[in-house]
């Protein structure tokens, strides 16, 4: 079948384009891995406790379940390390030394050791100590315990945006500019077959890309979709439709690739920077938050995060999704009106 053949060819040629593959698959994963690792606030940090000389084995055993990892060194070696300033906290001869330069880590570790020590003493006295349970949560996104969990849906949205504006919009402008459309127009290939194959290809790329991100999120950072996968797929499909329509619409306004770059960047950068892809805008001025809500990415990401991070439905996101749907419809109409082949 013609459409299938055209679709397969799109994939075959795409798979040869290493630059496109890098930006589509490797780059978002690198972003996620990079930023996720740097801002690993929620995951358990490991703190090193230098133990100079022999230490009570019960205490070391009691620390096994804590983020504090004891490092037992000979006294001379431990002193040298301390002098170099590499040690945040050191246990020696029954006392804790905390390095003022590394007070944040040192004090935290010292407290953990202190607590373990207290628990040991209480235990020896025949009492079972009970600690108050502690859970770490980020308000507004219930289960997103670390930055990577916040970032992942943001990057999914970003991918949709750049797919629409660049893989669809930019590509169509350059096809028109280089006369590729004209060459197709003199063949009997129906135009819709070409466009449908292109759209199908971009959609499959988008969903593969999202799947790759979810896998890396799951195995690399322990982040999983908290909501239903059906809902997530629907929300992703809506985003793909919205930003692809936007790419088609914008491509009707530019004659050259340079012209298109100017037009598309006017949409791309405000959305990328101000829609809460990388950080939330809760502390931004009110007017800015309101202005940004008019662009589709911001309400879109809110809905996406509600599903992905909070495991919630889309209740309360009706207005936001209506904005996205309105953009989709408007872009679609403009695309149909303005899109031309030559």
């Amino acid at each position: 079948m013609l459409l299938l053949r055209q679709f397969r060819m799109e994939w075959k040629l795409y798979a040869r384009d290493r630059v496109a593959l890098f930006w589509t698959f490797a780059f978002p994963i690198l972003m996620l891995a990079g930023f996720g690792t740097i801002f690993r606030q929620g995951s358990k940090p490991t703190l090193t406790l230098v133990v100079a000389g022999p230490a009570a084995p019960e205490l070391l055993a009691a620390l096994a379940d804590t983020p504090v990892k004891p490092l037992v060194l000979a006294p001379a070696e431990a002193q040298a390390r301390w002098k170099r300033g590499d040690t945040a906290v050191q246990l020696e001869a029954g006392r804790l030394r905390v390095n003022t330069y590394l007070a944040a880590q040192g004090q935290m570790a010292a407290q953990v050791v202190q607590q373990a020590n207290l628990a040991l003493q209480v235990g020896r006295a025949g009492l079972a100590p009970r600690f108050l349970p502690v859970s770490m949560e980020s308000p507004g996104s219930g289960h997103a315990s670390n930055y990577a969990a916040f970032l992942l849906p943001g990057l999914l949205g970003m991918n949709l945006l750049s797919m629409g504006l660049f893989s669809v919009g930019m590509v169509n402008v350059s096809y028109r500019e280089k006369g590729k459309f004209r060459r197709l127009a003199v063949t009997p290939l129906p135009k819709w077959v070409f466009l449908a194959a292109q759209i199908l290809h971009r959609l499959t790329v988008t969903f593969l890309q999202a799947a790759a991100m979810l896998l890396v999120g799951h195995f690399g950072f322990g982040i999983t979709n908290q909501g239903s996968y059906v809902l997530l797929t629907l929300v992703l499909a809506l985003g793909a439709a919205c930003f692809m329509a936007m790419g088609f619409a914008l491509s009707g306004f530019a004659k050259t690739s340079e012209g298109y770059a100017a037009i598309s960047n006017a949409f791309f950068f405000p959305m990328m920077l101000l829609s809460g892809v990388y950080f939330t805008l809760d502390s931004a001025p009110r007017w800015m938050q309101q202005a940004v809500v008019a662009l589709p990415l911001s309400p879109y990401l809110k809905a996406l995060r509600a599903v992905f991070n909070d495991g919630a439905g889309l209740d309360g996101h009706g207005a936001g999704l209506a904005i996205v749907a309105a953009w989709t419809a408007a872009c679609f109409l403009v695309a149909v009106k303005k899109f031309n082949w030559a």
């Binding site: 280089k178 003199v186 009997p188």
Partner: peptide
Amino acid sequence: IRGRIGVQLQSTSLF
């Protein structure tokens, strides 16, 4: 007609 004519445009752009 498109099926029976062959056209080489001034510039042919391919992948």
